[in-house]
Amino acid sequence: MALLTPIDMTALAARMANLDEVKGRSLWADARLRFFRNKAAVAGVVLLAFCATYALFGQLIAAHTYDFQNYDIMGEASKSGPNWAEGYYFGADQQGRDLFARTAMGTRISLIVGLIATAISVTLGTLYGAVSGYLGGRVDAVMMRLVDILMSIPYLFVLILFLVMFGRSLSVLYLAIGLLSWPGMARIVRGQTLTLKGREYIEAAQATGVSSFRIIIRHIVPNLMGIVVVYATLLVPDVIIGESFISFLGLGVQEPQTSLGTLISDGAKSVYYNTQWEIAFPIAFFMMVMFGFYFVGDGLRDALDPKDR
């Protein structure tokens, strides 16, 4: 144990007692600093925080529940506009339901679907791509051909098929979107893994005998996180758009629950009756969420990879 008996133990002990451990600044900490210096990114965070707060607590503030139908104003465009005195801050829809509460509900469901589906997609895609890229050779070829096949299947048709087969429920919706959108993630991750695989620190780990599984988990995946996080923030709005489209077609979320897509769809149908508020408020929140995610995504990309800006 020659290594572990230093020349002068007491001197070492004295030196170590005098020094506090220095806290290192990780690449993540550096990225965080850069991110918060980026005004657009911070604006994105603020927008998202605003939408999330509204989605979480909007129904508590609302004067009416999202499914309460007020028969007095039902179907009457002249009476159902925004009305602060009656508590209809955003107005009411054709069925006389409070649009403020319904938009909060819609934002919440859209965000939940976006986040859960993206989480499923990112987890699957990252692991699949990292394993495929790291193992390489034939395994990689077979795994990537499978991805090619999955990517060539028209996404929306399968999604509609899923919803028809397994029933139209929220969990089927986000599971289906998550399960269908991971191949893109897998491809990106695999490409990045291929470049990481040649790095010397991976070779160093292999030379010491670290198992492939641990190399993927400890060395590959943490170094992939930058690109994964960026891709994920850009995937969330995609998923929300997909969900909105499905709901717009009437296949997504079921009444009396609602999502931003359903609300916009309903609002679009009633534009003839001069009820602009019915489409304006859901679209405003939809756009805020989109802009928020895009700004945050761009900010993250700049912060995590300062080299190629």
């Binding site: 990780s26 690449l27 010397e200 070779e203 030379a207 005998g209 400890r218 943490p222 170094n223 996180m225």
Partner: peptide, 22 residues
């Protein structure tokens, strides 16, 4: 046997994982 034979690499910075502490 791997622990008995260790290796030191050419590029000092590249042989250390940037996301791990020393």
């Amino acid at each position: 046997h791997r622990s008995a034979i260790q290796m030191v690499f050419q590029d000092p910075l590249a042989s250390l994982n940037p996301r791990m502490t020393v």
